[in-house]
Design a protein around this nucleic acid. Structure first.
Lengths: 168, 168
DNA sequence: TATTGTTATACTCTATAACTATA
DNA sequence: TATAGTTATAGAGTATAACAATA
C-alpha cells in the first residue's frame, strides 16, 4: 500500500503524495516512532497503551478490555506479563468479590512517562520540519477532521474527566 | 497516551487537540481503518503490506526483509503462511542458486486490490469531513512534512520504478 | 568466507472455549 | 442465571542462533 507514485501531475515545483498514500505513510511513520520509543523500554505498543490508560484509572480487567478493545482473556495475559515485570499490581475489588483492580506501580508510571515524553519529542521534531505557519495549520486541520469524525461516531473528544490526580 | 486533554486554552469557538495528540490519534485511527479492511479479507496488516509491496516487485526474501524491516527468518514464516493460502509463490532465482523470488498470485493480487481500494475509500470518507479547501491543504501539508522527513533520512519518496507492469 | 534461506526455539499477543467463583 | 476472571489451547508474528547450500 502506497508503494506506487500514482501522481499523474508532476508540477516540478513540489511533488506531492496522493492523499491516501500520505495519510497511510504518516500513520506508519508515527506508529514506528511509538514502537521504537516503547521498545527502548522493552515495551510493546499494547503494553504502552495499557500503562497509558492506567495513568489516571484503576480499572477492572473487563473495563480494560473495553478500553483497549481486547478480550478479557487477552487482558488477563497482558496484565499478568506486566505484573511479572513489576509494572502493575492486581488487587481484589473491595466492592465486588469477582473483580480485580489493576494499578500502575511507581516503576510502571516512570516507564510510561519516559516513553510518552520521548514519543512526544519525536512528534515535535517531525512537526518542526514545517514552518510555524504550516505547523499550526496542519494541527488545526487534523484536529478539525478528528473532531468531526468523533462527532460522527458519537464520541466526545473532550470529556470532563473525574479521575484520580496524576502523579507524573 | 493521549488519554488526557491537556488543553489549557479553551477558546469556546473550536476546541483543538494538542499537535502531538492530534497526530497520535490520527495515526491510530488510520491504523484501525486499515486493520479493519484487511481483516475483512482475513489479512493482518503485515500480510497486507507483504502483498502490497509485491504488487510491483518480485523480490527475494532478503529484499523483502529490507522493505518490511523484518528479519529474514520472520519473512520466511510470513511468506510461508501466505504461500500456504495461495497468495504468493516462491520460485528459485535463475541467477542465484541461493535465492528465491516471491511473487503474487492472481488471488493474492485481487485480495490486496480489494482491501486497498476499500481502505482508500475509508480515507476518502475521512477527508470528506473537511471542506475541499481544507482537504487540499491538509494533503499538501502532510505530503510536505513526509517529503522533508524522507529527505532527512536519505529516502527518495518518488523513485523511478523499473518494475513489471501491474495487472490490477 | 560471506550470503541466502530455512529451521528450531522462545516469547508476545490474540481469540475461543471451558472452567471457577461470585453476584 | 449472569458476570468476572483465569486457564488451556491454538495460531500469527517476531527475533536469535544454528545450519545447509551456494557464491
Amino acid at each position: 500500500m502506497g508503494n506506487r507514485p500514482g501522481n499523474r501531475s508532476t508540477p516540478a515545483k513540489e511533488r506531492q503524495l496522493s492523499p491516501v498514500d500520505g495519510l497511510a505513510q504518516l500513520s506508519f511513520l508515527i506508529h514506528r516512532l511509538l514502537e521504537r520509543r516503547a521498545g527502548e523500554h522493552e515495551l510493546s505498543i499494547i503494553q504502552t497503551r495499557l500503562l497509558g490508560v492506567l495513568r489516571d484509572r484503576r480499572p477492572t480487567i473487563s473495563e480494560l478490555g473495553k478500553l483497549l478493545d481486547l478480550d478479557k482473556s487477552s487482558v488477563s495475559g497482558l496484565v499478568e506479563r506486566a505484573e511479572r515485570r513489576g509494572l502493575v499490581t492486581r488487587d481484589p475489588s473491595p466492592t465486588d468479590g469477582r473483580s480485580v483492580l489493576v494499578r500502575l506501580t511507581g516503576h510502571g508510571r516512570s516507564l510510561v512517562s519516559e516513553a510518552s515524553s520521548q514519543f512526544g519529542a519525536d512528534v515535535f521534531t517531525l512537526l518542526n520540519l514545517l514552518s510555524p505557519t504550516d505547523r499550526r495549520e496542519l494541527s488545526r486541520l487534523i484536529s478539525r477532521m478528528l473532531v468531526a469524525h468523533a462527532a460522527d461516531h458519537g464520541i466526545d473528544l473532550f470529556p470532563t474527566i473525574e479521575a484520580e490526580p496524576g502523579t507524573d
